[in-house]
Amino acid sequence: MWTSREGFTADVCGWLIQKTLLSPWKTLPLLLLAQFTSHGREIAQQHPKLHYTLHGLASLAVIHRLNAWTNHKVLNNGVSDQYDWTRETVVLTGGSNGIGRHIALLLTKRGITVAILDIEPPTKETEDGDKIHYYECDITSPDAIASAATDIRSSLGTPTVLINNAGVCTGQTILSGTEAQTRRLFEVNTFSHYHIVREFLPALITANHGMVVTVSSQSGYTTAPNMVDYSASKAAAVAFHEGLAAELRTRYHAPRVRTVLVAQGFTRTGLIRNLTPEDTWFNPLLEPETVAEAVVDTVIKGRSGRVVVPGTSGWLACNIRSLPLWMQHWTRSRLERLMRAF
């Protein structure tokens, strides 16, 4: 990851730091040499500030690794599971275009069967994949989903992975948007998640195996003017993911059913065609392939978790509510210029 499609960005620097300064496999041996060898102690005495810095970096590296390990154990309920990707079937909403299209292509390249639910047929490139099956479906309609589910089960078997990816964005202020636009946006970005899991999740619970991927957005954490409805719908998707993960363990007793939350930044798709998001070193405008690869890499691992891209600005977005109120308000006000429709 020396470079990326987006060029040399803050994420590349962050990756280098994690592989060097925040790697316990690199800092701990140096610290042990400095403390338990005569030559190391001599250098530590001659350069005390360097020794203190090394001690701090080693401590941070260990804490960082322990935190990642704890997150993994807790989010996966302390149990492991095996996936045979030659036998798993993925249901993917909004898979005909944008990020969803690339997710479908990447999955099928690994030999995984994908059932696309979309109101538009996939592109010729996507449709040609022998593992991709398209089902015309309005995901805002539970009846349409039930009909498509019947066809999927009869032809492909019982799906085991659900990827709620479909999304729409209006780019309207609160007063300029219409009731119909707002309702449609929430039906696609939020309510469809409930419709999909109500149809397919019971089979996953019975088998105690499978995965639900919720594609939200960093906007679900950071509300921006000119797209309050979108931010609100994505915040609801974040809450849906969190509540589903807890219910799977406590109410449905299916600890092996995995949950993944995707919080991506703005991406070069038709979703933002009327907006003007920034494209900077710290917060680059993403290519859809970048997001799709991050999603598929996580799905293939068969573990619960969270996908945040870009990672650097995404970390700030996901933790913005821990900042002082004046900083939160200043950030949202600044976003108005970036999210202003043409």
Rank of each mutant, 00 (worst) to 15 (best):
T190N: 08
A203M: 05
E336H: 08
V12N: 14
S304L: 07
A239P: 00
W281S: 00
A149S: 15
G94V: 05
S59C: 09
D279L: 01
L106I: 07
Q328P: 11
G171R: 04
S217I: 06
T214E: 07
E127W: 04
A235R: 11
Y221P: 00
G314R: 00
G167Q: 04
H329N: 13
Q18M: 12
E293Y: 04
R41T: 06
L66M: 15
G177N: 08
T158Q: 13
L248V: 09
V262D: 05
L162F: 05
S219V: 07
E278P: 11
S176Q: 15
L117W: 04
A61D: 01
G78A: 02
Q218L: 15
L57V: 00
A58C: 12
Q328S: 06
L28D: 04
I145Q: 00
L105M: 14
A236M: 14
V197H: 02
W326Q: 12
C137H: 07
L185W: 07
A246F: 02
A180M: 12
G210P: 06
S155G: 07
T37F: 11
E336T: 13
V295T: 09
S216V: 10
L60G: 02
K26S: 03
N97F: 08
A294C: 13
D138R: 03
R306D: 12
H51N: 07
E242C: 08
F200D: 01
R258C: 08
V168N: 10
F191L: 15
V215A: 05
V12R: 13
V188Q: 07
H55E: 10
H72I: 01
H64P: 00
T222F: 06
T290W: 01
T250L: 12
V79L: 09
A148V: 08
T150L: 12
I196C: 11
A237G: 12
K19R: 14
Q264H: 10
R321N: 15
L286F: 07
S59D: 02
Q328D: 06
G100K: 04
S155C: 08
V291W: 01
H64N: 13
A44K: 09
V215C: 13
H133K: 13
L22P: 01
A115W: 06
L201K: 00
V168I: 15
E120L: 12
L261E: 08
R110I: 00
E127Q: 12
V213H: 01
H193A: 11
E289F: 01
F186G: 06
D128E: 15
D128V: 05
